[in-house]
């Protein structure tokens, strides 16, 4: 584990990552309360929660440098090394895995809360659904890596390309793929209930809400610590 996450540990501040995760959980909790109530069914709640977590993690990371690869000055240093970009890319992938783990934990938490505590009606499809999303998002991470490695010559292009692809993958690619897979698997998507146009609208509202809340919380906490962490980005 230590060796696997070497690059990630070097680039990221452990304390800041903990703060970010806590803030993300807080923002996520508030959003899911609102959207979960609106969407009703437990699976809809998980769907929203998973997507929110993933999208926010990616946007937060790529736009605001969760792992701090955006600082252009530091990128000069990285670019001066032959393998610098590979080290950063590896750190990015490691960060994506961490986001995945975080999303799965929150998803399972949602299942426990909704199915076992709130509705007392466990549905095994929920677990399948969580795994499908996980694999789809992981694929999109690799897709990003392949695309940016092939076409992006400068760091800004690299970051821009990742950012756009992430948005596209998260907002467009993931939900339809999941729905198709669920349908082909004989799972009744009516059960999901809100994963239609209304679902998308709720989803977008939830994402924006969680995103804003997350940024406010992160900024407040980090300013509280006066680390200057974000000032360089």
């Amino acid at each position: 584990m230590g060796k696997l996450l070497k690059e990630y540990r070097v680039f990221a501040s452990r304390k800041m990552r903990i703060i970010e995760n806590l803030c993300l959980l807080g923002a996520f909790g508030l959003s899911i309360l609102i959207c979960g109530v609106l969407m009703g069914p437990a699976l809809g709640m998980i769907f929203v929660s998973m997507t929110i977590v993933l999208v926010i993690s990616f946007i937060d990371f790529y736009m605001f440098g969760g792992i701090a690869v955006k600082g252009q000055i530091m990128m000069d240093f990285v670019r001066s090394s032959y393998k610098g970009m590979d080290v950063v890319r590896k750190a990015i992938i490691e960060d994506a895995y961490i986001n995945m783990a975080r999303a799965l934990i929150i998803s399972l938490g949602s299942i426990i809360i909704s199915d076992f505590i709130l509705t007392k009606n466990f549905h095994p499809n929920n677990l399948v659904y969580a795994l499908i999303i996980g694999f789809t998002v992981t694929s999109s991470v690799y897709f990003n890596q392949i695309i940016t490695r092939k076409f992006a010559k400068t760091m800004m292009a690299h970051m821009g390309c990742i950012y756009i692809l992430t948005i596209v993958a998260s907002l467009l690619l993931v939900p339809p793929v999941v729905i198709i897979v669920l349908e082909n698997g004989g799972i009744d998507i009516d059960y999901i209930g809100s994963v239609g146009i209304a679902g998308y609208i709720y989803l977008v509202i939830a994402i924006l809400l969680a995103f804003v809340l997350n940024r406010i919380l992160v900024k407040t906490c980090i300013n509280g610590f006066k680390s200057g962490y974000r000032d360089t980005l």
């Binding site: 070097v10 600082g71 240093f77 962490y229």
Partner: peptide, 26 residues
């Protein structure tokens, strides 16, 4: 080739050992 930029390019939360580790990675 060794390169140094116009400014310090180490992030503020890095420790000296972190700088050492990162440079040895690169």
């Amino acid at each position: 080739i060794g390169y140094t930029g116009t400014d310090n390019y180490y992030l503020p939360h890095w420790t000296v050992e972190g700088v050492e580790e990162l440079t040895s990675l690169l």
